[in-house]
Design a protein around this nucleic acid. Sequence first.
DNA 1: ATTAAAACCGAACGGTCGGTCAGTTATTGG
DNA 2: CCAATAACTGACCGACCGTTCGGTTTTAAT
Lengths: 213, 213
Amino acid sequence: MNSPEISSGAQKVLSAAQELFANEGYASVSIAAIADRAQVSKANIYHHFESKDELYCAVLKAACLASAEMITHDAGQDNNYAKQLTNFARSHVLHLTNNPSVSTLVIRGLLEESSNIDATTNDLTAHDFDCNFNRLVTLIKAGQVAKQIKPEINPSTLATLMIGANILFMKARNVLDEVPDTDYPLDPENFANTMIDILLHGVLTEQQEDKLL
Amino acid sequence: MNSPEISSGAQKVLSAAQELFANEGYASVSIAAIADRAQVSKANIYHHFESKDELYCAVLKAACLASAEMITHDAGQDNNYAKQLTNFARSHVLHLTNNPSVSTLVIRGLLEESSNIDATTNDLTAHDFDCNFNRLVTLIKAGQVAKQIKPEINPSTLATLMIGANILFMKARNVLDEVPDTDYPLDPENFANTMIDILLHGVLTEQQEDKLL
DNA sequence: ATTAAAACCGAACGGTCGGTCAGTTATTGG
DNA sequence: CCAATAACTGACCGACCGTTCGGTTTTAAT
């Protein structure tokens, strides 16, 4: 069921590499460090993978696969698009917070331009990101066709809002919880709900909305 | 007016280091590469800076300073908070897109946990981020006191939406413009406007809003 | 039991890394 | 004009980098 070439030893290496690459980036992680964590010899890594680059690509590929898999699981063909957006936001932010190393890898690939590594890594993460991003855009457009979402809003902008906020939430949680900003919603589901609330109904009070007419 | 110890030679090194660190990260950039770009010898760098770590800290410090300076320039004490939010979003996204290397440095520091470098770098970027983040939160709370922004929305969530979307926009623009997603707003100001529109008024059509009552 | 392939290791390789040092040039105050 | 100091350099160091190689153990099919 898996790819043809995943022995248990290679899997140990992959897991160790994934965690280290996600936490510290490509260049900071040495083969020796990966070998240490995987409890194998340095030479053994080169028995399973051609080079450090190839190992990184393999790690990234696995991460993208896992990242793409999760979003597939919604597909609840509800006709209520508010609910569908909520589900997307919730499952997305849960995926981010539950699989931080996978997510970090994909995001890092996205945010780091002109990688010194093989160009395929860029395409890999870009395609994966595009995949999830476009799924959301498609969902939004469907909501517009169903006349539940305003026709004049830009689907890409809305998608950027949702995904950008989720990413920042995941990453900034570690930083912000040190500061006692008492009202910051640390629970992912809680955050997704308050976020969707804003996006669905806007932030202006009714009297302000009336004033604009 | 400047810090006491910024000769012209040191400044050349700083600029070169800033660009390289922003584009490729700390570990990928060698002192030799910085020396090459600054057109000085490797040894000269150690005449101006104690170590690679200290150089990176200096670069980051300058970036945070520049980043903090820009947001200070709004302060338009308008009583219209919709307009103030728009101004914030616009100046923020313009700052990001116009100073990509500065922004990338701060963001990178934010998103990379447990840096192998001195812990002060984390505090540095975290404090800078907090500064801008809290400024926005304060603005939102003022809007709530003025009864222009709904009292039940969470200021931190709204701030995360705005800042997260702007960051993702800045970073993903390079990736997404390859794909012919025709309706993606590539112009920063345009993006800020469509984003604020969504946040102010929500995305649901009126008939959907009515249905919820 | 034999054997071939796969998994694994210790030791070493050329190269680059951050960092040092002795020495040379430019700058500047007295 | 002269010292003293800052700016700057080429050559070099030990450590660590990714990678390779020769050889040993494990696995599994015959």
